[in-house]
Computed example of a mutant assay.
Amino acid sequence: MSDDYREERTYTIELRLSASFPDDYEGEEDGYEWHARFDRVVRPRIARAVIEALMRDPGWKVTPTTRGESESERLELRVERVVTRE
């Protein structure tokens, strides 16, 4: 039996993506390039910024964990703080 005591909380950052087009746009003409660019350029920057921000404070351990979901649609991180007695 473990002597560990664990407290947990959840913090959610949710992004709702959209793109607006001119009135004469026929739909899907760009092959969802706006989203492909987000996936290729912006999403990795966001993930990196969140992880770096968490790790700037000593004592945090950050582990990406998708639990079988698509990494392109979800970023889930397990963030652990280990509190030790001195």
Rank of each mutant, 00 (worst) to 15 (best):
S2I: 00
D3Q: 08
D3P: 01
D4V: 12
E7Q: 06
E8S: 15
E8L: 11
R9E: 12
R9K: 12
R9A: 15
T10A: 12
T12S: 14
I13S: 09
I13H: 08
E14G: 11
L15N: 10
R16I: 11
R16P: 01
R16E: 12
A19M: 10
F21E: 02
D23E: 14
D24T: 13
E26K: 13
E26D: 06
E26H: 06
E28S: 10
D30Y: 06
D30V: 10
G31C: 04
Y32K: 13
H35G: 05
H35I: 01
R37T: 11
R37S: 01
R37P: 02
F38M: 05
F38N: 04
R40V: 05
V41R: 04
R43Y: 05
P44S: 03
P44G: 05
P44H: 03
R45P: 00
R45M: 11
R45L: 10
A47C: 04
V50P: 02
V50Q: 01
I51C: 10
I51E: 10
A53H: 06
A53E: 13
L54C: 15
L54V: 06
M55I: 00
M55K: 14
R56D: 15
K61Q: 07
V62E: 01
V62Y: 08
T63V: 15
T63N: 11
P64R: 08
T66W: 10
E69Q: 14
E73V: 01
E73Q: 13
R74F: 06
R74I: 10
E76R: 15
E76Y: 05
L77C: 11
R78S: 11
R78I: 13
R78A: 14
V79N: 03
E80S: 07
E80N: 02
R81K: 14
V83Y: 01
T84C: 04
T84F: 07
R85I: 09
R85G: 05
E86N: 11
E86W: 04
